[in-house]
Design a protein around this nucleic acid. Structure first.
Lengths: 339, 339
DNA sequence: GTGAGTTGTGGGAACGCTCCCACTCGCCAC
DNA sequence: GTGGCGAGTGGGAGCGTTCCCACAACTCAC
């Protein structure tokens, strides 16, 4: 609880050493306009000699800004560090923020065990805005933060939040996949869907149904299984599908990992891909290149998603009033060997 | 550049509403001692009604503390999100910090492109201390930060920094591995070493040599190859080893990923493991369980390493003077199927 | 009834900045 | 000369806290 003694030079000391006023020194540091060359040099030298670094707290106190943005990932370490999706989105967010001269602060919701610690951090104006990445939709964090006047942009849509989100157009992507399968003449198109408590799971399924309808195919319960986005669940689901006695000739998997699992199950069952069964995934993750044959899949760009999230957040901080309609990023099909 | 209008309630407003002084309100918030029940209730109610949240900048300005600690990872997103090592260490750090009521702030050095942005952030007392994870040793970041009086603990030792680091005892671990191979009667023990510009690479090699010496075996250049810690390089290195015409009967691989690659190469070459060639890895990464046969390896605990780093950092912030000798964490051998 | 504690309390001062206003120059036009 | 203007400058005020000191209001001996 004791306050550590101050040891670092203050702006006032810099000014004194440079023989100018505090105001002038401040102007030099903040790229100020009206400063004489002489004063600028004197201040710069004093800064170098003293090793002066501005105190962020003091600055934030008066400017009410920190130039930092938090990215909150509400997933377990395992998932965050397992799925390449996160690496991509962080790369996009990181570079977009760097361009805007904002510092990215990454917070793993799991890591802050103490209930409320995260809320506290985010609402106490440590950051100018919050980017939230949560794939589940039972999270009330965004509402709690917004209530304190902190701008939030959510990556991955929540059903009840109709604004300030960025998401991949899952419905359109899934439809694309099914249309492709139908275009190849497949008539008994199954799906290995994702969990129903994730938007990605639900809307890709929705797109699957829409795709079938568009191709004049009936929706058949026996052709639907739900996995949990893991490779193991894909394999298992495919096995289940095959054991139902319905002759499947096409499968749309809600992500690439499950598709990889499905391919394995199909190989074990002696089905040829794509001759007997055509398979399409979703994500265009790295694994899509290393399956055998390489996976035909719906391409999404996490990096672009990250950049869009930043753009929207910065826009919100500039014009506090404006709510954003939410932005859906288009996908496209990458045709490789499985369909 | 314009200052957003204030909208959030201040402590003064809370105090006014509660009918007490600013000091009393502050005492209630900070779990103060001498506050009457009546005052406490009044303040708590005012806080709830107003939705008051303390301003971190103002508090930090006077206390000179932020109760936040930065974890800087100086690696590419690919590596960070590829190696389970990082997930483990972050879990350890996260939970240790949470127990100490500190907020963990994760900074990816790669993500802040602008040269100096990271230095600035760390230096301007946004955080009370810095944990640095860099596997290469050409980094001068820790020195730059320390120069500004910010405590730093490095994970993974740097050769020239003889204090304030935590690392796995790589030498001891590698020695353990070689001793085990020698104990199995192996006489021509090769190594697939790691890169020479990483401490882990160098010291595991050092341990390999020490292990050979301890077992009265000669060091033979033809039994040494260097990989880059990737699975592909392990496979390639093993092939190179086999093509040298020296009959290898044991291999110590500097990490599990390379060991997995080596196993593949050995299988391709028709060598039986462990009968013809015994293999030991290092890390006890998840992949060690899924190789065939399961990998015998040196176990290290990234989670414990994270916790130790936090302990050391907190100790430094409490007693600013004390330098720490650096802490080496012991490893132990996990015997599975390959040796 | 006095003096010495023990609880609680209010508010001034300080933390290190940015913002802004008032001021001093020097220059030019008239 | 005088007035006006723009460039450059110094420093007061204020941001929202915590810390601490002075003080009020009790209680409890003696």
């Amino acid at each position: 609880m004791s306050r550590p003694p101050r040891t670092r030079p203050t702006l006032e000391e810099v000014a004194a050493r440079a023989g100018v006023g505090r105001g002038t020194a401040s102007r030099v540091i903040n790229g100020g306009e009206k400063v004489s060359e002489r004063a600028r040099l004197a201040v710069e030298q004093a800064i170098a000699e003293l090793g002066y670094v501005p105190n962020a707290a003091a600055r934030a106190l008066v400017t009410r800004r920190t130039d930092a943005v938090a990215l909150v990932i509400a997933e377990s370490e395992e998932r965050v560090f397992g799925e390449p999706f996160f690496a991509g989105i962080i790369r996009g967010i990181g570079s977009a923020l760097a361009e805007a001269d904002r510092q990215l602060i990454l917070l793993l919701a799991q890591a802050s065990q103490r209930r409320g610690a995260l809320d506290d951090y985010l609402t106490r104006q440590h950051v100018d805005g919050v980017l939230l990445l949560s794939l589940h939709d039972d999270d009330e964090l965004p509402d709690r933060i917004r209530a304190h006047g902190v701008p939030v942009v959510v990556g991955g849509r929540r059903d009840d939040a109709d604004s300030d989100f960025v998401d991949v157009d899952n419905v359109q992507g899934a439809q694309l996949a099914v249309a492709h399968l139908a275009g190849l003449g497949r008539r008994r198109i199954a799906t290995i869907a994702g969990p129903a408590d994730m938007v990605a799971g639900r809307s890709r399924f929705e797109g699957y149904v829409a795709g079938l309808v568009a191709a004049d195919l009936a929706v058949d319960d026996r052709l639907v299984v739900r996995g949990d986005f893991s490779q193991a669940s894909g394999e298992e689901s495919m096995r289940a599908l095959l054991s139902r006695g319905v002759e499947v000739d096409g499968v749309f998997c809600a992500n690439d990992l499950m598709a990889a699992g499905a391919l394995r199950a199909l190989a074990d069952a002696g089905r040829r891909v794509p001759e007997d069964v055509a398979v399409v995934g979703f994500e265009d993750a790295p694994i899509a290149l290393s399956t055998r044959p390489p996976l035909t899949t719906v391409h999404q760009s996490p990096e672009q998603m990250g950049r869009e999230m930043v753009a929207m957040l910065l826009d919100t901080t500039r014009t506090p009033g404006a709510a954003h309609p939410g932005r859906m990023l288009p996908t496209h099909l990458v045709i490789r060997g499985t369909a």
